[in-house]
């Protein structure tokens, strides 16, 4: 029995990891293509048809590049930092349900790797670990720009994690559980029999604050102050080269995927597809369709992430802090109060 559980977990991990890493590669390509289309260019189109193998060529190049470590850097921490970043970015996906149960040989399997009963807490805990990668990278490089980038990252992440956690509380209040699969199942119901009861409908303010906080957590463009090329050279990865830089790069995109998956799970109904159960599909087809719905939702969220990057300019540092503490935090708190009152007096 234990062997079964281990094998099941390993198979799921293998699947999710492979899909995730492939997705990262194509996400980089998608980012470049979308940015190109927005700027009326073509984007990468030399390596393979439509530039399909561009990312693999890039990673291959990074592997063969010289790995330079500054003489005054702390070599151990300098090597550790990108590893922390990438492992945190990938392992967050472990608790995200990407489908309902699937029956193979009469046995039901849940389509999530770790069925933990504190899913949301696990996600919040791991995303806050991610900041260590960046801060340690900034500190160990022994470079003032890197250090500034690392400091900014820590300040930014702490400010936004607060409003992120608070906006999640609204979802938890409605669902009454921390388990992500149960939250998704509850979103399969309907309001007045028509509108799918996704949390984006029930928690619009919470959704917006969570979305903005996710952008800040993933260091994506309106909030990419830790990198801020024009001011800080390259921020925390100024002194990184070769595959160590590549790991930070991959971690950024893996974080994006995880953030999109979390947004979809918490607010956009996870793998739910409205009115699918009325079609009378067989359980297997139904599960596959739901997985497809999840994939499409995540893809749309990722597209949104990318388009926003090429639309909104970077915040100034004081604007970032203003937004975090003076706007997002009160909004998230007000959201909790309103949700609480609503649940109490309904």
């Amino acid at each position: 029995m234990t062997a079964d559980i281990i094998i099941e977990a390993l198979v799921k991990i293998g699947l999710v990891l492979t899909i995730n890493l492939t997705l990262v590669a194509y996400l980089v390509l998608a980012e470049r293509k979308v940015s190109a289309f927005i700027q009326n260019r073509l984007g990468p189109n030399r390596v393979g048809p439509w530039g399909m193998f561009q990312s693999f060529a890039d990673v291959g190049k990074l592997f063969f590049k010289e790995d330079i470590v500054p003489a005054a850097a702390n070599k151990f921490v300098h090597t550790l930092a990108p590893l922390i970043s990438i492992s945190v970015a990938i392992s967050t996906f472990a608790v995200i349900p990407f489908g309902n149960t699937i029956a193979i040989n009469g046995q039901e399997y849940k389509l999530m790797i770790g069925d933990v009963n504190i899913g949301i807490l696990f996600i919040l805990a791991l995303t806050s670990l991610g900041v260590y990668g960046i801060v340690l990278a900034g500190w160990s490089s022994n470079n003032k720009y890197s250090l500034l980038g690392g400091l900014r990252a820590s300040a930014q992440m702490i400010s936004y994690e607060l409003s992120m956690g608070l906006s999640v509380i609204g979802v938890i209040l409605i669902a009454g559980t921390l388990q992500l699969d149960k939250i998704v199942v509850q979103q399969g119901e309907y309001l007045w029999g028509v509108i799918p009861a996704w949390n984006i409908v029930l928690q619009p303010i919470g959704f917006i604050t969570f979305l903005i906080a996710s952008f800040a957590e993933t260091n994506r463009l309106p909030f990419d102050l830790p990198e801020a090329e024009p001011e800080l050279v390259g921020g925390y990865h100024t002194e990184y080269s070769g595959m160590k830089f590549g790991l930070f790069f991959l971690a950024e995109y893996a974080n994006m995927i995880t953030a999109s998956a979390v947004i979809v799970t918490l607010y956009l109904g996870g793998w739910q597809f409205p009115f699918l159960e009325y079609l009378g599909l067989s359980p297997l087809v139904m599960t596959l369709a739901q997985m497809g719905a999840f994939a499409v939702k995540v893809a749309l969220a990722l597209f949104f992430f990318i388009v926003v990057r090429w639309t909104v300019p970077r915040f100034r540092y004081d604007q970032l802090m203003d937004l975090g503490w003076k706007v997002m935090l009160p909004l998230a708190l007000a959201n909790i109060v309103v949700t609480g009152f609503f649940l109490l007096f309904r």
Binding site: F37, T311, L323
Partner: peptide, 25 residues
Amino acid sequence: LYIPAILSGLKITMTEFFKPSVTIR
């Protein structure tokens, strides 16, 4: 509120997204 401004920016980028590219291969 920022949000209306961001939305109008998104409108611009999305219309540009569907325009043909000017690049000559």
